[in-house]
């Protein structure tokens, strides 16, 4: 039976997209054509697409009631690995980076799913470790991409039909993720685990395997983000992904996913990451704003987004109970 359409419910469920539209509207009013041009919008999305990739993985993990703070570390190691292997050709650089990502993700999964260490602490530990590894690869210095892998530049700077390659990757990953979350058994298992792990076990869901896969996916996405970053900057940089641990959580929460798990939409994370992009774009257009002011403004906008989302959330609870 289809529920009756209700304006309140619609607002509460799509709060993040509405917030995104509002922000875009404000930016259009403030900046006019500077904001609403194809080149600016593409630029805006491209800038957040690497972070967005990582956020998709983190969103899944949070829906399952876990955390992944190590995504920034994984991005850093993969960016360095790709640069380190670039003398052996593009294929080696990309494959090496992806393999590293899978491995680091699997280590997270092993700690959480097999050793059953609390996800927050486990990935806090691996975050420290991965950042250390990234520094170790080239003594804490950045490492230029070798000329031997000419094709590598395409990952971060290539265009297909005038659309930057990172955006296409981000869109494809988001689309696949939405499909997996909403239309597959695996997706439902993730929601079930986040909702109530004990009942999920009783229902016969293989919790450990599901979590293991989640962390491997998350590692892969974050790692590929790091690889694209290396391509974009033409160098592996050990500080790639600094702050991604927190930014991804912020984007996911802005997208309407509950941090305690069991509820949330993958499309919400996409909205969250785009909100992030619009805010950053607006700050850039303000001209000469020092970084600390950027940080403060960003923080306050985030804070108000979380508060608004929270109020909407409560209304939804009232509506669904009433």
């Amino acid at each position: 039976m289809k529920k009756k359409w209700s304006g309140k419910n619609f607002f509460a469920k799509n709060g993040s997209w509405i917030a995104l539209l509002l922000l875009a509207l404000i930016s259009t009013i403030l900046n006019g054509k500077n904001f609403l041009s194809v080149s600016n919008l593409l630029n805006l999305v491209r800038q957040v697409s690497m972070l967005g990739l990582a956020a998709i993985g983190v969103n899944f993990i949070i829906i399952a009631g876990c955390k992944d703070l190590s995504v920034g570390g994984i991005a850093a190691v993969c960016s360095m690995m790709a640069a380190f292997l670039s003398p052996y050709g593009t294929a080696a650089a990309v494959a090496g980076g992806i393999l590293t990502a899978l491995l680091l993700g699997a280590l997270n999964g092993f700690l959480v799913a097999v050793l059953k260490i609390l996800p927050f602490i486990a990935t806090l530990g691996t975050m420290i470790a991965y950042n250390g590894i990234a520094l170790l690869i080239h003594d804490g210095k950045s490492l230029a991409i070798s000329e031997n892998s000419a094709g590598f530049a395409f990952l971060g700077r290539g265009l297909i039909l005038n659309i930057p390659f990172p955006i296409l990757v981000f869109a494809a990953a988001a689309g696949t993720a939405v499909f997996v979350a909403e239309h597959t058994r695996y997706g439902r298992a993730v929601y079930a685990i986040g909702g109530n792990e004990e009942s999920a076990v009783m229902m016969g869901i293989q919790v450990a395997r599901t979590k293991m896969l989640l962390y491997i996916f998350s590692g892969l996405l974050a790692g590929f983000g790091g690889i694209m970053m290396a391509s974009r900057l033409n160098a592996g940089i050990p500080f790639t992904g600094t702050g991604w641990d927190m930014y991804t959580i912020a984007a996911v929460v802005m997208g309407g996913t509950l941090i305690r798990g069991g509820e949330g939409k993958i499309s919400g994370a996409a909205a969250g990451i785009l909100i992030w992009g619009v805010i950053q774009n607006m700050i850039n257009m303000m001209g000469d704003v020092s970084t600390y002011w950027q940080q403060i403004i960003m923080g306050f906008i985030l804070l108000s987004a979380v508060i608004i989302q929270n109020i909407a959330e409560r209304r939804r609870e009232v509506i669904s109970e009433g």
């Binding site: 959580i249 912020a250 600390y292 940080q295 960003m298 923080g299 306050f300 804070l303 979380v306 929270n310």
Partner: peptide
């Protein structure tokens, strides 16, 4: 306000470091 501590204090971390 019922905001998740982890998200609130991440935001506060950013703002206060900025200040």
């Amino acid at each position: 306000m019922g905001i998740q501590p982890i998200i609130l204090t991440i935001v506060m971390q950013m703002i206060l470091r900025g200040f």
